[in-house]
């Protein structure tokens, strides 16, 4: 329940064919200092588009002043970089030695059968990409399957359908009923004590917390997840990752802010009153996961 909409769902972003020169320029600029940082640049572009579009590589070559051959060589050298568009969900099954002897080939076969594609291919509906990797470094837990960055261990053939279902639903989806560390809160403005809950715009399937966010003098309504432990939000898509914003109450328009600083990144913390007693504070930096809950003396 921080302001930070975790990462915007980049995989789901427009199928990534449109390359925005401005975005590429920003990424190159970010890595300008690190010597030979073209891999970092390529990784960022891949996070943005899900793959490396040809136009993007050309722009990187132009911006960095390196030759296209070098950029292309790096892009084709590393397994984790791809020039082929990927599906919304990426399934990577480990076929390393340890996973192999523990039955990974059968798991991969089952994935291929259920998805109807071979390893390395993308389903025709652009939902899933199946890849095999040679080791994920967690051999004791094999066979390992990584779905959208979420590790599944000791995978058996009959667990494949479950993984696909979870990936389809979103592996990051927070379900309070499954996870004891995630629970809903209702909060009020610390200034006017008006409820900040917004039933009209649910996030994580629950009423969300509505605040007004000021970024470079542009005000936009943002809805935060009311689940403590979830970092989802809606709105404020134009606010870049890592930007520190000002928060305002949408009712009294008072500025939300306190003296404390985020222990993760040092940005100001935004306090809100928890109904039933206590305070919750969330970090004002987009993308930061810093948050703190004080329930009447009990520090959670």
């Amino acid at each position: 329940m921080t302001q930070a909409a975790a990462e915007p769902d980049l995989r789901g972003a427009p199928p990534g064919d449109e390359v925005d020169p401005e975005q590429i320029r920003r990424i190159v600029e970010k890595h300008r200092e690190d010597r030979g940082g073209s891999i970092a640049v390529l990784q960022d572009i891949q996070t943005l588009h899900g793959y490396l579009p040809e136009d993007a590589l050309r722009m990187v070559a132009e911006e960095t002043g390196r030759s296209l051959v070098d950029i292309y060589g790096a892009a084709t050298f590393y397994r984790s970089l791809t020039l082929q568009p990927r599906g919304r969900h990426l399934i990577r099954a480990c076929l390393g030695t340890a996973c192999h002897v523990r039955g990974a080939p059968r798991v991969v076969e089952e994935f291929e059968r259920q998805l109807g594609v071979k390893a390395g291919e993308t389903t025709s509906d652009k939902e899933f990409t199946l890849e095999t990797v040679n080791c994920l470094g967690a051999c004791a837990l094999g066979p390992i399957v990584v779905a959208d960055g979420h590790y599944f261990c000791n995978v058996r053939k009959f667990g494949v359908a479950d993984i696909l279902e979870k990936a389809r639903r979103g592996v990051d989806e927070t379900r309070p009923e499954d996870d004891e560390t995630v629970f809903p809160l209702e909060v009020n403005c610390p200034r006017c004590n008006h409820s900040l809950m917004d039933r009209g715009a649910p996030v994580d399937g629950r009423p969300s917390i509505r605040v007004t966010v000021d970024f470079r003098n542009v005000l936009s309504p943002v809805n935060l997840s009311s689940l403590y432990g979830s970092f989802h939000s809606a709105g404020g898509a134009e606010i870049p990752q890592g930007a520190v914003c000002e928060f305002f109450c949408p009712h009294c328009h008072g500025r939300l802010g306190g003296p404390s600083r985020c222990t993760e990144c040092g940005a100001p913390m935004i306090p809100m009153v928890v109904r039933g007693g206590g305070m919750v504070q969330v970090c004002a930096r987009r993308g930061c996961f810093g948050h703190r809950l004080d329930l009447d003396g009990v520090n959670a």
């Binding site: 030759s67 051959v69 070098d70 292309y72 084709t76 050298f77």
Partner: peptide, 9 residues
Amino acid sequence: AKAIGFRGR
């Protein structure tokens, strides 16, 4: 020129 280079691995 740097028109050609190594690709893949």
